[in-house]
Design a protein around this nucleic acid. Sequence first.
DNA 1: CAGATAGACGTTTTT
DNA 2: CGTCTATCTG
Length: 928
Amino acid sequence: MKDYTKAQAEAITCLDEPLQIIACAGSGKTQVISQRIARILAQPGVQPRNVVAFTFTEKAAAELKDRVLGIVSRENGDVTGLAEMYIGTMHGYCLDLLQRLVPDTFKFSVLSDITARLLVDRNSRKSGLTVCPTSLASTPRLKRYLHSKLYLQAMSVLREDTIDESQIPPGVVAAQVDYLKLLYSKASFDFTEMINLTVQMLEGDPAEDEDAAAVQAHVREDIRYVVVDEYQDVNPLQEQLIRGLVQFGANLCVVGDDDQTIYQWRGSQVSNIVTFAGRYQGVRQVTLADNFRSSEGIVELAQSVASLIPSGERLAKEMVSAGSQKWERGDLLALTFDDDAAETAWICDRIEQLRGIPFQGSPGAEPRGLSWSDCAVLYRSVRADADSLVAELRRRNIPYVVKGLNRLFDSPEIQAVVGIFRAMIGEITDNDLRQLWLDAGLLPDLLRWDDALTVLEQGRDFDRGKRWGIYNIQRLYLDFLEALELREETLSGAPERGELVFYQLGKFSQVISDFEQIYFNTSPAEKYDAFVKWLTHQAPDYYADSDADAGYATPDAVTLATVHQAKGMQWPAVFVPCLRKNRFPSKRQGGVGLFHVIPETAVDQPDRYKGTVQDETRLFYVAVTRAQKYLALTFSPGHSQLYRNRSLLFDHCAAQTWVSTRQSTKPLPDKIEPKALQETPQVTISFSELKYLLECPYSFKLRFLYGFNPPIHEALGYGKGLHDGLAEVHKKAIAGELLGPSDAAELVDRHLYLPFAYPELRTTLRTSAIKAVERYFAVHGEEIPRTLHSEKQIQVHVAPGVTVDGRVDLIRRLDTDELSIVDFKSTDRAQAEDVTRDQLHVYAVGYEELTGENADLIEVLNLDEAGRNTREEVEDSLLAEIRDRIREAGDSIRSNTLPRLDNWTHHCERCDLVALCRDKPNPPAMLR
DNA sequence: CAGATAGACGTTTTT
DNA sequence: CGTCTATCTG
């Protein structure tokens, strides 16, 4: 405990009172939370499953998990059972909770922003979109495509915020009812509904609703400690969730910094954190004021920025520098330039100057030379302002990464791909298409073009068969690429180009999946027509700010990001350019907005959704506190009238004594060898991903790094439905309730969801599913009471930062008293889950980590009529070997060495993406 | 010099 | 559609 400050130690040891930790920037918050969780776990009688910790992002969760694991294994030497502690996002928690305890939701899947929009657009009336009234005189109704985003925002706000329902127009209420009806009829959650339904379960009457009773019983029995990180960004619905989880007396600890609230436009409410102590009884407040990240100059500057926020809207606190960095005159700069070009040039000059300057991460550490990745340029808007810097960095050959902006549809490669479908419906000629592909540099082998055209020709023929499912867009796309024999290596240009192009092609495969998931059951001609229209008019906008990070490897490059994306990060040198009036603080937005659907007065603190000067000040505070030592704030007049003047934030900073307004002419210290700080990224993969990785690293790369998806199969959902049905059987058995063959039809009807099947297939599959369940009861009925666990969540920690997680179908005690790990297998041709011995041994490793107990047997139970079951002993030698192989697999992801198999194997035979990898070997001459 | 009016312009994003 | 700026008007 002596490495901690007094405040930190107080936070760590306070386990029994409601605790509010106010953590200033760089105060070692994550370390404190992890240490506190380790303390909780060390108490006698506390099990890992008694602890729930929420983070804002998956990334933050991975980091926290790894820290806790590190501390626990160091201090206790044993991490058994830790997989049962939940550390993750609230969304993930709610989804998991529902799909464990509420059988009706087992079959539900989650819509992304994009697929939710597609669903609303396609069902414009049924979703309520076009019937939802607005207060606009000129646009009395919302329009398809144009307003689906706004409509979804309103649908979220209505559920997430504190709303005065009496003020909501009846038409809007009716629209919302329609929307939810559609969502549930499609067995889908949007991001809000996972939390909303969980809250309903937590607040429902257990006497009336058996699902609510099950959820509440679980919470009452298991949850004893709840920790909420980034508490300042919690919205009212999430606050309700937290209250529901602690309603039976669990301890609550919230951690946050009100000065860093930057998501109020998404509904988060600063007042949650500001009034926390007044809303819960006997709250202990601890302020972590020591900043271990930045120099005194930066801390003082940040303090002066925070003081611009009116005192009634923030918690009083005084951040102090712990002296981890030394402030020197000239580290902090506020500079003005005549134009954009001069500003950009200076930033590049400065980055080049700083490269190789000795830097110590903490006092006493070995100095290293700063490198590219130690510099970050943070914008209010990357989209609006970053172009000129990108051009200059490229001109100077300085490596850089622009976060979160990919502009997928701008690239000639994607335009060429879009051309395939435009040509298909006759919007452009085949010659135009060829020209597009030539211009994009995607035709290494012109001879193959005719084969590709044949694929197109066949695709155009809508009289091939009656079933709409055979007119599969994804299939056509992959066939087209296959006909061209397009390979990563054979593309012209620099070697990295192949990787870049494949990344784009893979993203496009994801675009097709998104579309086809919603439009699968549309007549072929209409479907292709709608696809092209969507690709030209909507998709570029939908995907404009979609995720662009390619894998886990971190390049040594300058980071360009928005301030929002920089949250939680730090760099030795930070640049904040384009500090222009109306940009930062940003001018308020016009346009058709939320309050044209929902009356402003019905919402508590409606200003959140509009953006205030205080919000912008908090955002700027976040930007400043990212810097460890060097911080440059710059301004040059923008091109348009609106952005000609200096930002008031810039002027405020320039007036601070710690800041220089002219760069010093004194020479910088002597340079040493630049050495990038290599952070080992956290790698978390699922069992199914691991399966691909162990079989063929390149197949893993194509699927999970590039994003290629296999075509949708009409029977998709069959295997899942069977699994879910049996899961309910076994879960009920654990609770003491035994189902039998007469329940088979009801089970299948509850769990089998076949969104892509045509009517005839649906009937066939339903019948065979019922038979399979009946057969299961007939063959295994007597063993059902021997269930120990069903759908058991397990995790394997192989090496620091490498986690594999997944679920084991069934764990049971045989009549021989042996412990058996069981995997169900069904012939679901869409997702032929081939369970290998390797994979089952991974389960055995996971089970051992979870319970400390060794499994004796691994079994595969085939649910098919003709299928064979297998049963074999767990092999200890294989267990050790599998650990090594997973560790290697983790390393290969991090270093991005994911090569093809050396030669054609049986894995290639069954791989549905093999066309993107290699040719089929020629059959032996005799067979030709 | 206050007030009216025309014209320019349009952010951030996890789950 | 709303906000900010420049310019015009009395």
